[in-house]
Amino acid sequence: MKIASVTSSERGGTDQVLCDVAARLQSRGVSLAGVLKDTGYVSGFSNGCDMRVRVLPDGPVIKITQDLGSGSDACRLDPGAIAQAVASVEAGDLNSAELFILNKFGPEEAAGRGFCDAIGAALERGIPVLVGVSGASKAAFDAYADGLATALEPRTDAILTWFDVPEGSDQNH
């Protein structure tokens, strides 16, 4: 089982490095599954809490937040849209994927929902999993991964090196 996390302290850094890794791997012909943040989407909210994700490898792009009004401080995640993104990933060809990427292990995954089953399915098939993890979700991810995940530096070269190392070598954890 090969699973890794990446966390950047720079705002948007994790999303950018995951997108860079995906682009590099796809240019090499590597088959991907999962979701990435649509980094070209401009948030309609001043706090930036408005996002779309792109289902790998070729879409669709799904808006996973909802507009709760200007005075709301509630979570803007749209559970229905997240379920749609999960269903799109699960309906894809996971069997041919060489890497599963999840842009963020967030509140849904911390609660055992969201992409947890898709991550498990990838790992059961021997597909390496790369997950973006924020500081707020680190403890939940660590509990989910049960100590089996490798924490990677938020650098494209470090992630590509991890991906290229065969499972079972000393560099996997």
Score class of each variant (00 low, 15 high):
Pro154Cys: 06
Arg54Tyr: 07
Asp73Asn: 12
Leu99Trp: 05
Gln26Val: 07
Ile119Cys: 01
Asp67Asn: 14
Gln66Pro: 04
Ala97Glu: 11
Ala110Tyr: 04
Asp67Cys: 09
Leu148Thr: 07
Asp67Arg: 01
Val86Thr: 01
Cys75Gly: 00
Ser27Glu: 03
Pro57Ser: 11
Gly112Leu: 12
Thr14Val: 05
Leu68Lys: 01
Ala140Ser: 10
Val6Phe: 00
Ser134Gly: 15
His173Ile: 13
Gly48Leu: 07
Ile119Tyr: 01
Leu25Pro: 00
Lys104Phe: 06
Val42Ile: 14
Gly40Phe: 02
Ile119His: 00
Arg52Val: 06
Asp58Arg: 15
Gly132Ala: 05
Asp146Thr: 07
Gly126Arg: 12
Val42Gly: 02
Glu167Arg: 15
Ala118His: 12
Met1Asn: 12
Glu124Tyr: 08
Leu32Asn: 04
Gly135Ile: 02
Glu167Gln: 14
Asn95Pro: 03
Ala145Phe: 03
Val53Asp: 03
Leu56Asn: 05
Leu99Lys: 06
Val129Asn: 00
Gly114His: 01
Glu108Ala: 15
Gly59Thr: 09
Gly34Glu: 01
Asn103Phe: 03
Ser134Ala: 14
Ala121Trp: 14
Gly92Ser: 04
Tyr144Thr: 00
Phe100Val: 10
Gly34Val: 05
Ala158Val: 15
Ala85Met: 02
Ser9Ala: 14
Val86Ser: 03
Val61His: 09
His173Lys: 10
Val30Ala: 08
Ile159Lys: 09
Tyr144Ser: 02
Glu109Asp: 08
Gly80Thr: 07
Leu130Lys: 11
Lys2Phe: 08
Val165Ala: 13
Asp164Lys: 02
Ala121Lys: 15
Ala121Gly: 09
Gly120Ile: 06
Ala23Pro: 01
Val21Arg: 00
Lys138Gln: 11
Glu109Asn: 06
Ala140Lys: 03
Ile64Arg: 00
Lys37Phe: 01
Ala22Asp: 02
Ser88Gln: 12
Thr14Cys: 01
Val165Lys: 07
Gln26Met: 13
Gly59Ile: 05
Gly44Ser: 09
Asp164Trp: 00
Glu153Asp: 14
Arg54Met: 14
Cys75Trp: 03
Lys138Trp: 10
Arg155Asp: 10
Val17Phe: 06
Leu18Gly: 05
Asp50Arg: 08
Thr161Phe: 12
Val42Glu: 07
Gly132Lys: 05
Ala122Lys: 05
Glu98Asp: 08
Ser43Thr: 02
Ser43Cys: 01
Thr156Cys: 15
Val55Gln: 12
Leu25His: 02
Leu77Met: 07
Ala122Gly: 04
Ser5Arg: 14
Val35Lys: 04
Ile101Trp: 03
Gly168His: 10
Phe141Ala: 08
Val131Ala: 12
Glu90Gln: 13
Val61Pro: 01
Ala91Asp: 07
Thr65Gly: 05
Lys2Tyr: 02
Gly80Lys: 06
Gly40Ile: 13
Leu25Asn: 04
Asp58Thr: 11
Ala139Ser: 15
Gly147Lys: 09
Leu99Gln: 11
Arg125His: 11
Ala136Asn: 06
Leu160Ser: 03
Leu56Ile: 01
Gly106Lys: 13
Val53Thr: 04
Ile119Val: 09
Gly40Gln: 08
Ser27Asp: 06
Arg113Asn: 08
Gln171Arg: 15
Gln66Met: 14
Pro57His: 15
Asp67Tyr: 12
Leu32Thr: 09
Asp170Asn: 14
Val129Tyr: 02
Ala74Asn: 10
Ser70Pro: 06
Val89Trp: 04
Ala140Met: 05
Val35His: 03
